[in-house]
Simulated scan of single mutants.
Amino acid sequence: MGEELYELPKGWVWVTLDSLCTAIGDVDHKMPKAQETGIPYISTRDFLDNGTINFENTKKISEEDYKKLCRKIYPEKGDILLSRYGTVGEVILIKTDNIFQASYSVAIIKPVLYQINNFIATALKSEIVQTQIRKYIRGVAQPDLGLGHIRELYLPFPSLTEQYRILEKIEELFTQLDAGVELLKKVKAKLKRYRQAVLKAAVEGNLTKEWRTAHQGELEPASVLLERILKQRREKWEAEQLAKMKAQGKTPKDDSWKLKYKEAIAPDTSNLPELPDGWCCNTVRLRIL
């Protein structure tokens, strides 16, 4: 991995994740028994997109099983969780005092200093580290990331003062991004209303009002077009009926079969808005199959 590392700003150093932590581990892979009440036993499915844990529907385990699992390692406020099975590479900085245990699908990372945990969590989410994670993933059907590879992850590491400044700047920029997202949502809603307004203007003839005025006398009235469409509609129906009778080996004796044709329903225009000159109104029949 060393040959892939880029030159850092003056005062920064490349470090392995293991060198910044007192422990990186997971619990025993034997699944504890679930019960209705008890201590939350989270997995990657309880990770939320906003970087927090959803404790509402987590699996619950007994206090006895919890204590057994804690002999190896347990999560505390300030620790970092890294998903290592299934969906690999999701990061959560624990900001709660809630007592819980994490399944073996999650690596528990314990930074040496509480002051650097936020920067480490941020670095783990960055593309430089996520690229390393993708490189180390094993398996296809059930991807997993080994603890040994997690310990070997390289992180760019600045001074504590600069870490604080970086985190402040990230918060500032993310706040701006969130504001931008909200603005886009409002713009999207306005665009939807605008689209509807354009469509309304289109079917009312307002979009082509000036064009219609400029081409008066040149346009075929819609009533003439409708008459031609209705004629073709009847002709098509008759052709289809003749084809069916022919396929059944039948020959019509007279034109009485044509009486079965259903004329198009004339619309009731009494409550409809006035249309532009040359337009007409008609109904649309939907055939439900």
Rank of each mutant, 00 (worst) to 15 (best):
K200S: 14
T52Y: 02
A202C: 09
V284Q: 04
V13H: 08
L155G: 02
A34H: 11
W257F: 15
I133E: 15
R212P: 05
A121G: 10
I108V: 15
R84D: 04
S43D: 06
T269F: 10
W237P: 10
S105W: 00
D178V: 00
Y261V: 02
G249N: 09
S103C: 13
A266L: 14
R45L: 11
S103Q: 05
K125L: 09
I128F: 11
G217H: 09
I166S: 13
L17F: 03
P267E: 15
N98H: 14
M1Y: 08
A266I: 12
Q115R: 13
G11F: 15
A189D: 09
V284K: 03
D28K: 12
I53T: 06
D254M: 00
V88I: 12
Q35R: 09
E238A: 03
D46H: 01
E3T: 13
L147R: 03
A141V: 05
N57P: 05
S43G: 13
T16L: 01
N117I: 00
Q142L: 10
K231C: 00
N118E: 15
K188G: 07
W279G: 06
F100M: 05
E63Y: 08
K200N: 14
P9T: 14
S126Q: 15
K60T: 05
K125N: 14
R134L: 07
L184S: 11
S103W: 11
L20S: 04
A141C: 02
V224G: 05
A123I: 03
D97M: 04
K110A: 08
M245F: 12
V129S: 07
F119S: 04
A141P: 00
Y114F: 13
F119A: 04
G249Q: 08
E172K: 04
K258H: 11
N118Y: 12
L289W: 14
S83P: 11
K68W: 10
S270M: 09
S105P: 06
I42W: 05
S105Q: 12
R165N: 10
L113M: 14
L286R: 13
I150W: 05
L259R: 15
P75A: 01
I73K: 05
T44A: 15
T58V: 10
P111E: 13
K246N: 06
L184R: 08
N117Y: 03
Y154R: 04
L20T: 03
E7G: 07
I42P: 10
V187Y: 13
E220I: 04
I61D: 08
D65N: 04
N98A: 12
L69F: 04
F55L: 07
G78E: 01
Y154F: 11
G180R: 00
L207V: 05
D178W: 01
Q130E: 10
V224I: 07
H215I: 06
L20Y: 07
E90Q: 14
A239D: 12
Q163N: 04
K33F: 07
K188N: 12
L8V: 12
I170S: 07
I94V: 15
H29K: 07
D18S: 08
P9K: 07
E227G: 01
I108A: 14
G148Q: 09
K231Q: 13
K95L: 14
W257L: 11
K258V: 06
A123S: 14
K10P: 00
T122E: 15
L219N: 01
E210D: 15
